[in-house]
């Protein structure tokens, strides 16, 4: 245990940014600590000081019409139960409610889930299909926003500078006649990382016949969750029937790489991904049809 590590509990963003400016790469940010404490105790992450940001004022919550703002310190349980998020960005709420158990979700935050950038972090696929941006702030340079796809560099690697803190996620409004969902394949009902997960946002044209736009993000099929842009392009303009789904699934598989671990074999992941994707398409199609009826 890093027994000699300093631990500073902070209550304001200004204070946190000031400490980050002076400690930089020697500091690690800790909110609920569900991931960070394990990383520090195991030696996976090394730091001289832990900056405890869990109790910073004003960095939690969901607000805004049109483009919505999700505070980085919003807990996963609050996201899972927020009626506004459930109705506007359903997949985000679903994913938050599937990460660990309630004891984890009570204190784990959106910012922590994204910035840890674990290979199967639950919030990544649903935020990727919303084209979410991450807002970063630093004392020296003020604020900037970055597309989530640019922010995520590799497993456990992001574009966050050592003196920056993630403060929010910005989610553009969903188009008309659209629905989103998160399908997670796992061995148990909870307390388990996904074997494969698919987030999908489907939008239909006015006649509800053809796909006007689709966004697909997959996890468990590479180092980090990714947007399957080739598959998205193939589906646009076509009816979301069996043929189109099969072609899109092939395009997803073409850029996937699967690994074998104690949860599942690579061949199982490869076999289950097209089914998870097809299931996600049918959930979204049904939801759009039900809303249009």
């Amino acid at each position: 245990m890093s027994a000699d590590m300093d631990f500073l509990s902070l209550t304001s963003l200004a204070e946190a940014l000031e400490k980050l400016r002076s400690y930089g790469a020697d500091a690690v940010l800790v909110a609920g600590g569900t991931a960070a404490r394990y990383q520090l105790v195991s030696g996976m992450v090394k730091a001289k000081v832990a900056l405890h940001i869990e109790r910073i004022d004003g960095a939690a919550g969901f607000s805004g019409n049109g483009t919505a703002r999700l505070g980085a310190l919003t807990t996963l349980r609050d996201i899972a139960e927020d009626a506004d998020i459930l109705s506007r960005f359903r997949a985000v709420a679903m994913a938050a409610g599937k990460c660990g158990g309630w004891q984890t979700q009570s204190i784990a935050t959106a910012g922590g889930n994204v910035c840890t950038a674990a290979p199967t972090a639950d919030l990544l696929p649903p935020l990727l299909v919303q084209d979410a941006e991450i807002e970063l702030q630093s004392r020296a340079r003020g604020g900037r926003t970055l597309g989530l796809g640019e922010f995520l560099l590799d497993a456990f690697k992001t574009a966050r500078a050592p003196d920056e803190m993630a403060t929010a996620f910005l989610l553009p409004a969903q188009p008309a006649r659209s629905a989103d969902t998160y399908v997670r394949i796992q061995r148990r009902g909870a307390m388990e990382r996904p074997i494969i997960a698919v987030a999908l946002r489907l939008a239909m044209d006015e006649g509800l016949k053809n796909v006007s736009e689709v966004r697909i993000a997959v996890s468990g099929a590479g180092a980090l969750p990714f947007r399957a842009t080739e598959a998205e392009a193939l589906m646009a303009g076509n009816a979301p029937g069996k043929e189109a789904i099969r072609a899109a699934a092939d395009a997803i598989l073409a850029r996937s790489s699967f690994r074998t671990d104690p949860r599942a074999s690579a061949s199982y992941r490869k076999a289950v991904l097209p089914r998870a994707f097809a299931h996600a398409v049918s959930i979204c199609s049904d939801a759009i049809a039900a809303n249009g009826a």
Partner: peptide, 25 residues
Amino acid sequence: EGECGACTVLLDGKPVNSCGYIARA
């Protein structure tokens, strides 16, 4: 390691796994 729930306590009324929670927090 925060998977079994045997160590659950309420922190400001919310259930958390105390085995993974930093006492100084």
